[in-house]
Design a protein around this nucleic acid. Structure first.
Length: 543
RNA sequence: GGGCGUGUAGCUCAAUGGUAGAGCAGUGGCCUUUUAAGCCAUUGGUUCAGGGUUCGAGCCCCUGCACGCUCACCA
């Protein structure tokens, strides 16, 4: 915390609204007039504020001064006063606070106002006795809700008990032309209560800055998101992982079954793909001796959007030499519990009305057993797509004809298992044909050592014992090429360089991928991915 | 892509096919310790866009756009 300011002498260069004695108006700004804003018109409310800007400039005041003189956040100012009050030595706490003007109650020769900064709010108290008629009038006439201002004065407690700044000087820091959408805020027990607020989701996402400015709980979601990513890094860093960055623009995409975005490099005259996963590049690094690597970054998938899908999303992947999927499973429980504890301070949270407990160990469900119990179908007894499709039809299901066996199984677990996994659950041992990068089980070549983690009925992560046999890997690529030949965009392209890397020798390893957005949804209680993305994808606006 | 729904003042929302309204915000006035401040007065509209039906459309019909829910798609 910075020390309280005890003197006003340092404020000789203070941009004074009070006296109108600020420096020269910047860049001819004094002669700016009400200009058309592109093709848009200012609305009536904005025109009033634009006129205020013009008036301020004409009088020699700068509505957008270059520097501020803030010494304390709102919370620091209040804490400093309360500490002095508790010490009882009568120390005067002088502060300069800055922030957005969020409430304004002018009462004749008195003004109460609140400013809000990153730490919260503090009340400003302005009285004609200290400021004079002219300054008080300027505060009322020149300033509007939403403006950024700074105010200097001594901390004190009002009659009704609120720790406030008794303002001796104030300055406009940045004029807001467009009024914030919130109609009115009330502070009850330190909580901001909005009585009418911006709620239209389209406006909230398109103008996220306005949403953030007026909805504190939205800011909180993104603070939590930052903490989650911090905690993930800490967990892996503490375990001797190296954070790396691999190409987003890739000549050959891979590592997942998804349609890519295609772009074009003009000079190289070459198509490039935005990555759909990090996997193949990260595993190359294991060949190079970086035995534990992770990356947190963006993946891009050219597919439908939904409450849990956005075209670009944040992924964590890590690869760990000499580990297998059971080790990764255990680390996953530990990692999520660690993050949850760090971010929420406990191992439980509420999601979609359900209390979720991430305390290890998590429930583990064998995929084949799980499907037998949920559907009565034993996939081991249906070794072909035809036999499995017949078994599904025999139970009244209506699968799309001609799907590969793996796709059918994937559909079954999506329909009958995933929605039931509310509490943290690992589903493990997947069919080989939907897992072309995972290693087969030693005693069952049709099944691979792979698991997915589910929470809240939602897939959270995917991991396996990584395939490191270049002969097997080449065969899988060829199989996938055939399997997906009809669905051209989704086929796995042969990545010769990846195979070349593997031929140098890749240590056995376990790999892990997780949707960071979905983890954020869980830990912030949001049901749609858009609420945890600062700028979710929207269609182009048609105005 | 399919189905259902929504779109009205800066924000949140009303309005049987018959003069488009309220609260908040804004503007003007009163008020020296307020807490969604209060009281008085008052401004503010291409009813998403474009067609159509009708004497008359915010409302009914058609087309388009955006958003929401849902299905499909989706390691």
């Amino acid at each position: 915390m910075p020390p309280p300011v005890r003197s006003s002498s340092r404020c000789s260069k203070w941009h004074k609204l009070l006296s109108g004695q600020c420096g020269p108006a910047t860049s001819g700004g004094a002669f700016l007039n009400l200009q058309p804003r592109g093709l848009m018109q200012y609305n009536d409310l904005e025109k009033i504020r634009v006129e205020k800007v013009n008036r301020l400039r004409a009088s020699g005041s700068n509505p957008y001064p270059t520097r501020a003189h803030v010494t304390h956040t709102a919370a620091q100012a209040i804490a400093a006063f309360e500490a002095a009050e508790a010490a009882g030595n009568g120390e005067v706490i002088t502060v300069c606070v800055g922030g957005r003007l969020r409430s304004l109650r002018a009462m004749g020769k008195l003004i109460f106002a609140h400013i809000e900064d990153r730490s919260g709010r503090v009340q400003l108290f302005l009285r004609v006795n200290e400021l004079g008629e002219q300054a008080l009038q300027q505060f009322r006439e020149d300033l509007d809700l939403g403006d950024f201002i700074e105010a200097r004065g001594n901390m004190f407690r009002t009659r009704s008990g609120e720790v406030s700044v008794q303002v001796q000087e104030f300055a406009l820091l940045a004029k807001a032309i467009t009024p914030l959408p919130a109609a009115k805020d009330e502070v009850v027990d330190g909580q901001v209560v909005r009585h009418a607020s911006l709620s239209d989701p389209e406006t909230r996402y398109r103008q996220r800055y306005a949403d953030l400015a007026i909805n504190p709980e939205v800011r909180q979601i993104f603070r939590t998101r930052g903490k989650i990513i911090q905690a993930l890094r800490q967990f892996l860093d503490e375990r001797d992982f190296l954070e790396v960055e691999t190409p987003i623009l890739q000549p050959i995409y891979g590592g997942a079954a998804a349609k890519p975005f295609v772009t074009y490099h003009n000079q190289l005259k070459q198509n490039l793909y935005l990555r759909i996963s990090f996997e193949l590049y990260l595993k190359r690094l294991l060949v190079g001796g970086l035995e534990r690597v992770y990356e947190i970054g963006r993946d891009f998938r050219n597919e439908g959007v939904s409450y849990k899908h956005n075209p670009e999303f944040t992924q964590l992947e890590y690869y760990m030499a000499y580990a297998d999927y059971l080790k990764i499973m255990q680390m996953t429980e530990e990692m999520i519990a660690f993050v949850c504890q760090r971010v929420l301070g406990k191992l439980t949270f509420t999601f979609d009305g359900q209390t979720i407990d991430v305390t290890p160990p998590w429930r583990r469900v064998d995929l084949r057993q799980g499907l037998i119990e949920a559907t009565g179908i034993d996939i081991a007894a249906c070794p072909t797509a035809e036999s499995l499709e017949a078994a599904m039809r025999a139970r009244g299901m209506n699968p799309k004809p001609g799907q590969a066996r793996g796709k059918l199984i994937d559909g079954l677990l999506g329909d009958y298992l995933e929605p039931t996994f509310i509490q943290p659950t690992f589903l493990y041992n997947y069919p080989r044909d939907i897992s072309p990068l995972a290693k087969s089980m030693p005693d069952d070549p049709t099944t691979v050592e792979r698991f997915e983690g589910f929470i809240g009925g939602m897939e959270l992560c995917n991991a396996f014992t990584e395939l490191n046999d270049p002969f097997d890997q080449e065969a899988r690529f060829l199989e996938m090429g055939r399997a997906y030949a009809a669905e051209d965009e989704e086929r796995h392209p042969m990545d010769e360089d990846y195979l070349q890397a593997m031929r140098y020798g890749m240590p056995p390893n376990g790999g892990f991928g997780m949707g960071v957005d979905r983890l954020t949804m869980l830990l912030t209680g949001q049901r749609t991915i858009r609420e945890v993305l600062l700028f979710p994808h929207l269609r182009e606006s048609s105005d």
